[in-house]
């Protein structure tokens, strides 16, 4: 109960202090809407990128047994415990214009990630993907291998097994992982500001906007925080409902 109170108190404070009267005008502020839209777009793109990169990785971690796999697993979860700002610096050193890999992206393809929306997505993916990987890996690990075996005896190829048996079986975890990943990406601040910088309309997501606003207009920052809180709550609630309904055979 104390734990719950501890978690809820700051959120309640946010609700109490929110400038409710000014909320309407704030929400119609185009800069706020831009930041909000950018946040949602980037978080969604980062989640998709995490699915594409993370699911095969999770499969590998869960199913391939090689020495050193434990270390690999630990490394994958590193961004979970790393301060995001460190992640941002690391990304800058890797993918920045003078970065280890980034310099070639720049030289060969004229591609620079920092200060671009793509950079925001990269930073968010870096920080949020481990949430998806860890969740999906756990599901794959505990998934019923017997069912996959049964499918094989019925003539299913590896890909058929994965597509028709494994994936549907881990669907709830996949969804849960995606939601976690999305939520983490939505709230990403440290890696984003370090790697992608801060420019309204391009790289200024809601958390950055809130941070900036806090220095000049704390009231506006409070209101913006409230908006982000509401968006997160609504989407988590909606998804939670859907996946609870989706699996009656619990």
């Amino acid at each position: 109960m104390i734990g719950f109170a501890f978690l809820m108190l700051p959120l309640v404070a946010l609700l109490i202090r929110a400038p409710w009267s000014g909320l309407g005008s704030l929400l119609s502020n185009s800069e706020v809407l831009t930041a909000l839209r950018l946040s949602i777009e980037c978080a969604t793109a980062a989640t998709l990128a995490s699915l594409i990169l993370g699911v095969p990785l999770a499969w590998m971690l869960a199913r391939i047994h090689l020495p050193g796999m434990g270390l690999l697993r630990a490394l994958v979860t590193l961004p979970l415990v790393l301060p995001p700002v460190v992640g941002g610096i690391a990304l800058l050193l890797a993918l920045g214009r003078r970065g280890v890999v980034g310099r070639y992206l720049d030289q060969w393809f004229g591609l620079t990630l920092p200060f671009t929306t793509a950079g925001v997505i990269v930073a968010e993916t870096f920080v949020a993907m481990p949430f998806l990987v860890v969740t999906v890996e756990g599901a794959l690990r505990s998934a019923d291998r017997d069912l996959e075996e049964a499918a094989v005896t019925l003539g299913a190829s590896r890909t058929t097994v994965f597509g028709r048996i494994t994936l549907p079986l881990i669907a709830p975890s996949l969804l849960a992982g995606s939601v976690l990943c999305w939520a983490r990406a939505l709230g990403e601040f440290g890696a984003t500001i370090t790697f992608a910088g801060n420019l309204p309309g391009t790289t200024q997501t809601m958390p950055l906007k809130i941070y900036n606003a806090f220095e000049t207009d704390p009231e506006a920052a409070t209101a913006l925080s409230l908006v982000l809180l509401l968006v997160a709550v609504i989407i988590l609630a909606a998804l939670r409902d859907r996946w609870l309904r989706g699996s009656p055979s619990a």
């Binding site: 800058l92 050193l93 920045g96 214009r97 003078r98 920092p114 200060f115 500001i193 992608a196 910088g197 801060n198 420019l199 309204p200 391009t202 790289t203 200024q204 941070y211 900036n212």
Partner: peptide
Amino acid sequence: PVTLEQNVKSTLTKVELGEV
């Protein structure tokens, strides 16, 4: 600008790193 940094030192860092 490509980025609006939080303080002067991080603006300078972006220059030092050659990112801008």
